[in-house]
């Protein structure tokens, strides 16, 4: 039973990816354009993974769907922008004149802020509510609104677009007569490293084994003598830190605005549901699929009236998958 349903999942995944690539190929017209589409899809897929992985593991372990995850992504983008550019709240432009090195600091600052806010949210706000899961959902939603308001208060409502140019963002390599951004490749590579790294952590370390056991039955883990709440805090903090990291590495391309949080949250949720709630493999596969789908839709929508297509693609894909498998691609038990 489990085997056969997993087989249909794999068939479905392969079919969908082939269909996406075929549409991408048709709309691209040239191998260079097709390459751009695939690269952009993988890039967006990796950014999505950075939001969705936290959502998925936190949901699996703690039964909390963290609607504030998108807000952490947004804050990561703002912090990175702020540190990188002149005239921010933290102005490092004179202390660290080299923009490449400063970018590293910007990313680290974003991770620290994300982790700090993650601890505050879990310890201070969610912990009193574990007995009332409905309120946790409502609370994370409320927190996402407050974080958006705080960001607008500090950095105003005008979206920032990344203006500073620095080495790695600007360099390109050429393939099939088409220029590809090295930075995108770099983000894709980093995403792959993270996917593999987190998988290894979950597979081989003691803490990873405890997390996987907790995803199944956190009460039993506690009854074996493990302080599960401490694990909750750790995982929640890591999830928020990874989302903030995602926002930081996305900022040079997408800039910083108060709306990117919501759009990445929605896409991230689509990924998590599509992959199967709480399934790590499902999240990784789902991220790549949704990323590719968005990129294909973007390339298909160029010059047509369907400019809304890329935005609604994740939801359309989600509905398609849920029609095939109601509990998602790798979801064992949806109830």
């Amino acid at each position: 039973m489990v085997r056969t349903s997993r087989n249909t999942s794999i068939v479905a995944i392969i079919a969908i990816i082939i269909a996406l690539l075929a549409v991408g190929w048709i709309t691209a017209g040239s191998i260079g354009n097709f390459g751009i589409t695939v690269m952009s899809g993988l890039f967006q897929g990796m950014l999505l993974f950075l939001v969705a992985s936290g959502l998925s593991i936190i949901f699996g372990l703690m039964d909390v769907l963290n609607f504030a995850q998108g807000a952490y992504f947004m804050i990561g983008a703002y912090v990175a922008y702020d540190v990188q550019h002149v005239g921010g709240v933290i102005d490092l432009t004179t202390t660290i004149p080299d923009p490449n090195i400063r970018f590293v600091f910007a990313v680290i600052a974003a991770i620290i802020v994300g982790a700090g806010l993650g601890v505050i949210l879990e310890r201070g706000l969610l912990r009193p509510l574990y007995a009332r899961p409905v309120f946790q959902l409502v609370l994370t939603f409320g927190v996402s609104l407050v974080l958006a308001e705080i960001v607008q208060f500090i950095w105003t409502t005008t979206p920032y677009s990344w203006t500073e140019t620095f080495g790695i963002r600007e360099s390109f390599f050429t393939l099939f007569d088409q220029r590809f951004s090295t930075y995108r490749l770099f983000v894709i590579g980093m995403g792959v490293v993270l996917i593999v790294g987190i998988a290894a952590l979950l597979r081989y370390t003691r803490i990873g084994i405890i997390i996987r056991a907790g995803v199944e039955d956190s009460g039993m883990v506690e009854a074996l003598g493990i302080n599960v709440r401490a694990i909750f805090t750790l995982v929640f903090t890591l999830g928020c830190a990874i989302a903030a990291f995602g926002g930081a590495v996305a900022a040079p391309f997408l800039g910083a605005s108060s709306t990117i949080g919501t759009s990445f949250l929605l896409q991230g949720i689509a990924v998590v549901v599509l992959g199967g709630m709480g399934s790590y493999v499902g999240t990784a596969v789902g991220s790549v699929m949704v990323g590719l789908a968005i990129a294909v839709a973007q390339s298909a929508a160029i010059g047509t009236d369907f400019s809304a297509l890329p935005s609604i693609t994740p939801m359309l894909l989600l509905i398609l998958v849920l029609l095939i498998r109601p509990s998602g691609l790798f979801g064992g038990n949806a109830r």
């Binding site: 949901f59 609604i312 939801m315 849920l322 949806a334 109830r335």
Partner: peptide
């Protein structure tokens, strides 16, 4: 579509469908 699954699926679905409609009507000529 969503309520046969865990309650949180309904929450997600309503958010997603509402957002889709919002995007649709803010782009529909």
């Amino acid at each position: 579509v969503s309520l046969r699954l865990r309650g949180v699926y309904f929450t997600i679905f309503t958010l997603a469908v509402a957002e889709m409609c919002y995007i649709f009507f803010s782009r529909w000529q």
